[in-house]
Design a protein around this nucleic acid. Structure first.
Length: 506
RNA sequence: GGGUCGCUAGCUCAGCGGUAGAGCAUUCGGCUUUUAACCGACUGGUCCUGAGUUCGAAUCUCAGGCGACCCA
């Protein structure tokens, strides 16, 4: 039967429900238990035994097995499922005063996908299924559209992303992923709160997109007649708060980067940035370990996990290695020994590093070598430390290593998962570095930052030594939920519109 | 941006040049211990869109749309 006919059949049932005095779109229902609570509480009830205790449940009908005078429905709520044992004699006994044909109504007017409430006692069937032995049922919401195949479920990836609600209804593991995501962010916030950090919300609409190298989304404010940019990082505003006297601040929120889409990139994604006055990047490394191992322990109960069949040990301490040493180990080339760019380029080419013709400094060459030869090999959590100054415009110069900064990035399963510096607090140095960025931007680099003059002004009032940390929440959730694609941890990932009207022939 | 693969009934899929199919769901009939219930009967299609090749296209070719994965 075609989709429209299936829907029409159910709309017909709406009218029938109304005609017998049952509202197909009810106002309220009070359950006594969730499905999981009942399953846990009565786990020891023997087969064939009934407990005379009145319970009320509500949920969506996932399967129906209907006999002449008996029916079994599987009812699903957020926590799980329970079977309804629907016996004609019993239902007629308790409902026939209001609904003379209650059992026939149940058989004829309910469908898979409907949301119903049921009251009754508890009984474990002879076959061992804990069931609500129903006295009364009530239609709560009539569903007009058919659910996917009860056995094969929904596998079409396009529908799963475009109509996530269907995916959530029929795939319990998808609900579990988003439940875990909420637990992970709650764990992080709880830890920071206990440690004296406060969360302050900073602007999403900004007149200058700074704090990272990324192309921003541009939008427009009508009454102010000005272009605005969606934030690409929360960094520069959170640092202003440190200047203002807050000593431990963070923001967990959405940022936007106008870039490509892949299994690791969505144009809007979630980061947490944390800033702590009087701390440096060593303190931030410790905080990173603590936040992630705490979340893993609280949500998964362990720091020994499996990601896509690879064992990952999140148990701290994690490996720490400088970028120079990591590249040297992977390629045999020690870029720290070079003083001449051409010499370094020759060595890089000899080591098989490609696309280096526009590397204008040894530091960029080192970074290119790192990205090509090291990054994907960092499966176990690893802190890569001491990045070149050329690629770290907001990081403080290393206290003992010229040309490098006090910066680290955390890699897990070959992906950048966190980024942190001893924050640059020298306003004169900061201005020079941002002006170099602005020159690149003027030359056409769409990912380069401009100079945020007010941010420089804030630094001139004086920012205490500060450690800053950013963690990519989506990538962290991927690791902790064993999700292969970032779209699996974003409830409503960005997809192209289907544009059906454009395909209609003239 | 490049490559590979996919798009057929509400869902899951088969069909790969000769009348568009199956299972589940739906509809109707039967059934008081099922759990992919079962038995019987019926119904259901823009084969992603457009153009081309052909006597004939879901099938072959080209262009486009959407999506997945890999690479840059």
């Amino acid at each position: 039967m075609a989709s429209e006919d299936l829907r029409a059949t159910r709309i017909e049932k709406l009218d029938q429900l109304r005609s017998i005095g049952m509202n197909p779109f009810a106002y309220q229902w009070k359950s006594t238990h969730s499905m999981a609570e009942l399953q846990a509480k009565y786990v020891d009830l023997p087969n064939g035994e009934e407990i005379v205790v009145d319970v009320a449940v509500a949920g969506r009908i996932m399967t129906r097995r209907v006999f002449g005078k008996l029916a079994f429905f599987t009812l699903q709520d957020e926590t799980g499922t329970i079977q309804l044992y629907l016996d004609k004699n019993r239902i007629q006994e308790f409902m026939s005063d209001r609904f003379p044909e209650a059992f026939a109504n149940l058989k004829q007017l309910t469908d898979m996908g409907d949301i119903i409430g049921a009251k009754g006692t508890l009984k474990r069937t002879d076959k061992g299924e804990l069931s609500v032995y129903v006295k009364e049922f009530e239609m709560l919401t009539k569903s007009l559209l058919p659910l996917p195949d009860k056995f094969h479920g929904l596998t079409d990836i396009t529908t799963r992303y475009r109509q996530r609600y269907i995916d959530l209804i029929v795939n319990p593991e998808v609900r579990e992923t988003f439940r875990r995501r909420a637990l992970i962010t709650a764990s992080i916030r709880r830890y920071l709160d206990r440690d004296g950090f406060i969360e302050i919300e900073t602007p999403t609409l900004t007149s200058e997109a700074g704090g990272a190298d990324a192309r921003p989304f541009v939008t427009y404010h009508n009454t102010m007649d000005m272009e605005l940019y969606l934030r690409i990082a929360t960094e520069l505003h959170l640092k202003r708060l440190i200047v203002g006297g807050f000593e431990k601040v963070f923001e967990l929120g959405r940022i936007f980067r106008n870039e490509g889409i892949s299994t690791r990139h969505n144009p809007e994604f979630t980061s947490i940035e944390v800033y702590q006055a009087y701390a440096d990047y060593n303190d931030m490394m410790a905080l990173t370990e603590t936040l992630i191992t705490t979340a893993a322990t609280e949500v998964l109960g362990t720091t020994e996990i499996t990601y896509q069949e690879t064992p990952i040990s999140l148990t701290s301490p994690w490996k720490r290695i400088t970028m120079h040493d990591a590249v040297k180990d992977a390629t045999g080339v020690d870029f720290a020994t070079f003083t001449d760019l051409n010499q370094a380029i020759a060595a890089a080419k000899a080591a098989g590093i490609h696309n280096i013709d526009d590397c204008s400094s040894i530091g960029k060459l080192l970074n290119e070598a790192f990205e090509q030869k090291v990054e994907t090999t960092l499966i176990q959590p690893t802190f890569i430390t001491d990045y070149p100054v050329e690629i770290s415009p907001l990081a403080k110069p290393h206290r003992s290593k010229p040309g490098l900064t006090e910066r680290f990035e955390l890699f897990i399963v070959g992906r950048e998962t966190a980024n942190s510096f001893s924050e640059l607090t020298d306003p004169l140095d900061q201005r020079e570095r941002l002006e170099a960025q602005a020159a690149r931007k003027a030359a056409g680099d769409l990912e380069a930052q401009g100079v945020d003059e007010d941010f420089i002004t804030a630094l001139e009032y004086g920012m205490p030594p500060t450690g800053g940390l950013g963690i990519g929440i989506d990538r962290l959730v991927m690791v902790l939920t064993d999700a292969p694609s970032i779209r699996d941890v974003i409830a409503f990932p960005l997809l192209k519109s289907e544009k059906n009207e454009d395909q209609t022939p003239e």
